[in-house]
Every structure is written in structure tokens, then in C-alpha cells.
């Protein structure tokens, strides 16, 4: 399946990636050949086959909703690229 440069650009927006012109071009041809390989799966009859999303028998793990010790605010913020007064700072969102 051929993936056009426009489609690559659309996916990049969804993925929050800003691709260069060169990257868009390379990804268009690389993704096309990888997706061609994926087309193999069309040979398999999967009608009435349940999908598997996890290798272990998924069982929900519950616990009581109780207060427990957790990381301090300082520890949570120590890796932040920009933090101030106990908050994460980001560029202005509302104009």
C-alpha cells in the first residue's frame, strides 16, 4: 500500500511530530514497504477469532482506595524542564 506524503503529514500531526521534508519523504517510502509486508496478514482467516490484547489472562486488580505514602512534590518536579512555585510551567495556552 502506498502511503502518500500527505498521509504521512496527517499521521505526524496525530503523533505530535514535526517532520522535516526529508523525513516525510523517507517515511512515505519506508512505511509503504513495511505496510506491504503487513498485507500478509490478509491471507489469514480471522473471522470469529477473538483478538488477544495481552499475553496473560487479564484479571483486574483491585485495592482499597486509601491514602499511602507517595513521592514528594519536590521529587515529582525535580526532572521538570520548567517548574515554578510547585507547579509545572508550560507555554501560554489561552490567548
Amino acid at each position: 500500500m502506498k502511503i502518500s506524503k500527505e498521509e504521512v503529514e496527517k499521521v505526524a500531526v496525530l503523533a505530535r511530530l514535526a517532520l522535516t521534508e526529508g523525513e516525510t519523504e523517507t517515511f512515505s517510502s519506508e512505511m509503504s514497504s513495511i505496510l506491504d509486508y503487513f498485507d500478509k496478514l490478509k491471507e489469514v482467516d480471522t473471522e470469529k477469532v477473538e483478538p488477544t490484547s495481552h499475553a496473560s489472562a487479564g484479571r483486574n486488580v483491585m485495592r482499597h482506595d486509601e491514602v499511602r505514602p507517595s513521592l514528594s512534590k519536590e521529587e515529582c518536579l525535580m526532572n521538570a524542564p520548567d517548574a515554578d512555585k510547585g507547579c509545572l510551567r508550560v507555554p501560554k495556552i489561552i490567548g
Binding site: 505530535r16 511530530l17 514535526a18 526532572n79 521538570a80 524542564p81 507555554p91 495556552i93
Partner: peptide
Amino acid sequence: GVKYGYRASRPEGLIDMYA
């Protein structure tokens, strides 16, 4: 680029900062 790790410098707004 918000909670930890690298952040690009001089972004034009939040979405641009992510990308």
C-alpha cells in the same frame, strides 16, 4: 516536554512545544 525529560527551546505555543 512537560513533566520530565528534554524540552525544545523557544516553542510557539503548547502544541508546537510538544511537536
